[in-house]
Computed example of a mutant assay.
Amino acid sequence: MIYIEELTAEEVTTLNEMHKNHPRYLSRRRSHAILLSHRRVSVPVICATYNVCRQTVSTWFSKWEEFGICGLIDKPGRGRPSILTENQKNNIVKKVQKSPRSLKSVLADLEAELGITVSLDTIKLICKQAGLVWKRVRKSLRSKRNQKDFEVAQGKIKELIQQHKESEINLCYFDESGFTLEPCVPYAWQLSGQTIEVPSSKSKRLNVLGFVNRDCEFDSFVFEGTVNTSVVVACIDEFAKKIKIPTVLIIDNASTHTSNEFKENIERWKEAGLTIYPIPPYSPELNIIEIIWRKIKYEWLPFSAYESYQSLERELFNVLKNIGGSHKVAFS
């Protein structure tokens, strides 16, 4: 057999789903091989893609022709029986959760406690089967916050969101963020054996003061100098001039938002239709503009932005002016 000739639309859809989502790697690559052959990719190319012999690919094709999708899935019990019992696997998962950064320490514990020697690949497979994934650990301030105050604020903001949806108010969020030539290094798809290198150097800081509402309508002010309370007050004054309906502005507890100078303006803004709502300390997830800053730093700013300070300015201003347009977040 040279090529898989005819596939129905339903078979193509099923094979694509198996290739993307099937839990077993062998079934994923077999379904992909069938799709490649249907697209007139030759057997030698498929062999080279998966580093298998021609006979293996021919067997895949024959199983497909005879049994369909079922021919691409291994029967239960196929392969070498596991040397580990279910209790031992559960014990391994618990050990990994206690030492999530070092699988080698888990291997050492297994050998010392149970006299069992397994490979790192086996430990990784057990982790994946248990739903564990290898991903970046996040910093958190949750342990420092007052949980009761957080829940009260969470409930209040939920009410404000509903009022925003009913067009009774405009619910906005305010915060500041800084950008320099020292990039936040993101994950990226890269060729095996090669690494994308992003330029990094010391530079002046571009401070962005931003306002965003639930519909991702965004306003910003950019400064090179220090951002103090006077700067923050001036920016909110400019923002207040544009409001058309009663507006609630959610802010965090930065020192520029809690100073006497800032507090002296709260009543004046309220008379102009702008109500300030401060969230409790250590509650960044209540301020959705944090999502905008994360998107800019890790996704929207191109690597070329870090070639020079002029490039950073140009690319940052380009991103800022397109937030709500080509750069948009659909807040739930």
Score class of each variant (00 low, 15 high):
C127Y: 08
K128F: 09
Q129N: 14
Q129V: 02
Q129D: 09
A130C: 00
G131R: 00
K135R: 12
V137Y: 12
V137T: 10
K139A: 12
S140V: 05
K144N: 05
K144F: 10
R145G: 07
N146A: 10
Q147C: 09
Q147G: 03
K148F: 10
K148L: 13
D149T: 11
D149I: 11
F150C: 04
E151N: 14
E151Y: 13
E151M: 14
E151I: 06
V152Q: 13
A153F: 01
A153Y: 10
Q154L: 14
G155C: 12
K156C: 12
K158V: 05
E159H: 09
I161S: 11
Q162Y: 13
H164G: 11
E166A: 07
S167P: 02
S167C: 03
E168M: 09
N170G: 08
L171P: 03
L171F: 07
F174W: 00
F174V: 06
E176A: 09
E176I: 06
S177G: 12
F179Y: 09
T180E: 04
E182V: 12
Q190C: 15
Q190V: 15
L191A: 15
G193D: 05
Q194S: 14
T195N: 10
T195P: 08
E197D: 07
P199Q: 01
S200G: 07
S203K: 05
S203C: 00
K204T: 04
K204L: 09
N207I: 02
V208K: 12
G210D: 01
F211K: 08
V212G: 00
N213V: 02
C216Q: 02
E217I: 02
F218S: 04
F218C: 00
D219F: 04
S220I: 04
S220Y: 12
S220T: 03
F221T: 07
V222M: 13
E224L: 03
E224H: 10
T226V: 12
T226Q: 11
V227N: 02
V227Y: 00
N228K: 01
T229W: 02
T229V: 00
V231G: 05
V233K: 09
V233G: 07
D237P: 11
E238L: 14
F239I: 09
F239C: 10
A240L: 06
A240G: 08
K241A: 15
K242N: 11
K242W: 07
K242T: 13
K244D: 15
I245G: 04
V248M: 02
I250P: 00
I251M: 07
I251P: 03
